[in-house]
Design a protein around this nucleic acid. Sequence first.
RNA 1: CGGAGCGUGGUGUAACGGCUAACAUGCCUGUUUUGGGAACAGGUGACUCCGGGUUCGAAUCCCGGCGCUCCGACCA
Length: 380
Amino acid sequence: VYSFLPLGLRTLNKIVGIIREEMNAIGGQEVSMTALQDKKNWEATNRWDDAVVDIWFKTKLKNGTELGLGFTHEEALTAIMKDHIRSFRDLPRAVYQFQTKFRNEERAKSGIMRAREFLMKDLYSFNVDEEAHAKFYEQAKQAYVNIFKRLGLGDMTYVTFAGGGSFSKYSHEFQTLTDAGEDTIYVHEGKKLAVNKEVLNDEVLADLGIKKADLVEKKAVEVGNIFSLGTKFSDALGLVFQDALGKNKPVIMGSYGIGPGRVMGTIAEILSDEKGLVWPEAVAPFTVHLILLSNKKSVVGSEDTVKKVADEIYEKFLKRGVEILYDDRDATAGEKFSDSDLIGIPTRYVVSEKTVANGEVEMKDRKTGKVEMVKISDFK
RNA sequence: CGGAGCGUGGUGUAACGGCUAACAUGCCUGUUUUGGGAACAGGUGACUCCGGGUUCGAAUCCCGGCGCUCCGACCA
C-alpha cells in the first residue's frame, strides 16, 4: 500500500479531475459509497464466498456481524438504485464515484500500478434495454478514449477486446503499451485496436474482420475496462422497472472502471527520462517551477534584488491563477536543477543575477530541454 | 499457493565466529561558496528485527517467530 505525498497527490487529483469531467460529460452523476459491504447483497449474487472471490478483505463489527471491504461496487449500487428506479421514466442513469477499493491480492507488484488498496473510478449504467445500453456503452468508450488522450497516453493506448466474463461476449480494455505492463496484447495498427492474448482465437479474428498476420504482440498495462453486465445484478438483487405497459422488467447494466493510481504510474513509466519524471501539463503537480539562484543568503528583509524579482514573478503567476512551485531554498544551483528535473514540472523559470542583469528570466521546457530568455517586463 | 533471497545509525551499504560494529549519504555548528547534486573543520546518530540455543566469545552459526523483496501461478 502507498501513501501519496504532496506532489504525488496533486497529480493524482489532476487525473481524477480529468476523469470526472469526462464522466460528467456523458451524464454521469457522482456519488460516494461506503467501502464497508453488506454480506447480504453479495450472497445474493454469489460473490461473498471466499471460494468464489478470493480477494476479499473481510472484517467484523463488535457484535459479530461480518463485513467486507469492497473490491468493486455493483452490489452496493444496485441495492441503492432499487430505491430510485421504479419506472422507465427513471431511466437512463449513470452513476459513478472515486472510491478506495480493497483487494487482497496474493501478490501485489509494480508499485502503485497494482496495490491492495487503491483509488478507482467506477461508473455503472442503468438502461431500459440492450439498445439503450449499447448506445451508452459506445459513449462511455468514447469518453475513455478522450480521457487517455487528455492524459497524454492517447497514442499508445488501444481499445482492446477482452473476455466478457459471464455477462457478454466481449469487454473492452484500454491497454497502454509499456514493458512495465503485465498483459500481452495483439495490436492491429491499421484499425487502431488490439486483442488480449487471453481471448485470441479464430472466432475473435472473424468477429473483428482482421487477419492474424496483421497483429503484433506487445506488452501493455490495463488502464481501464468497460463491461456490459446485462441483467446479472438486477436479476439477483431485484432491480426492476415498470415499462410503459406496466410490465416489470430488469434493468440492463454496465460497469466502467479506471484506476487513477495505475494511470499515474503508467504515465510516469512511459514519459519519464533518465533525469526523472516528465509530467504532461494536464497532470503535472504544478505548471511552472520557479527557481531562484541568489548569490546572497535569502534572509528575510534583505535587499537582494534578484530575490525581489523572483518574488514579484511568483506573485504575478499566483494572481493569474497559475499553479507554481517556487524554489527559494538556500541550496546550490545544481541541487535545485536536479530536483527540478526529478519532479518533472513542464516549464522551469530560472531567476539569477546573470539573467536579471539582462532584464531577463530563463525559461526551459522539461520535455524538450529547449531554452528561451523572457523579458522580466513581459510578466504580467 | 510453489520457489529464491534479505532484515545492521534517518537512508544506502560493509564487517573471517574475535579490538570501541566500518564507510557513504543525511542531519546539526561554524567558515566559505552559488548556473548542473560545492569545499573544509567539528559534531549527532545502531541494545545489528524479536525470542531462544551453540560457544570462552555471535551482526556472523543453529531453531522458532515477525517483516520485507524478487520469480512463477493466480488476478470476476
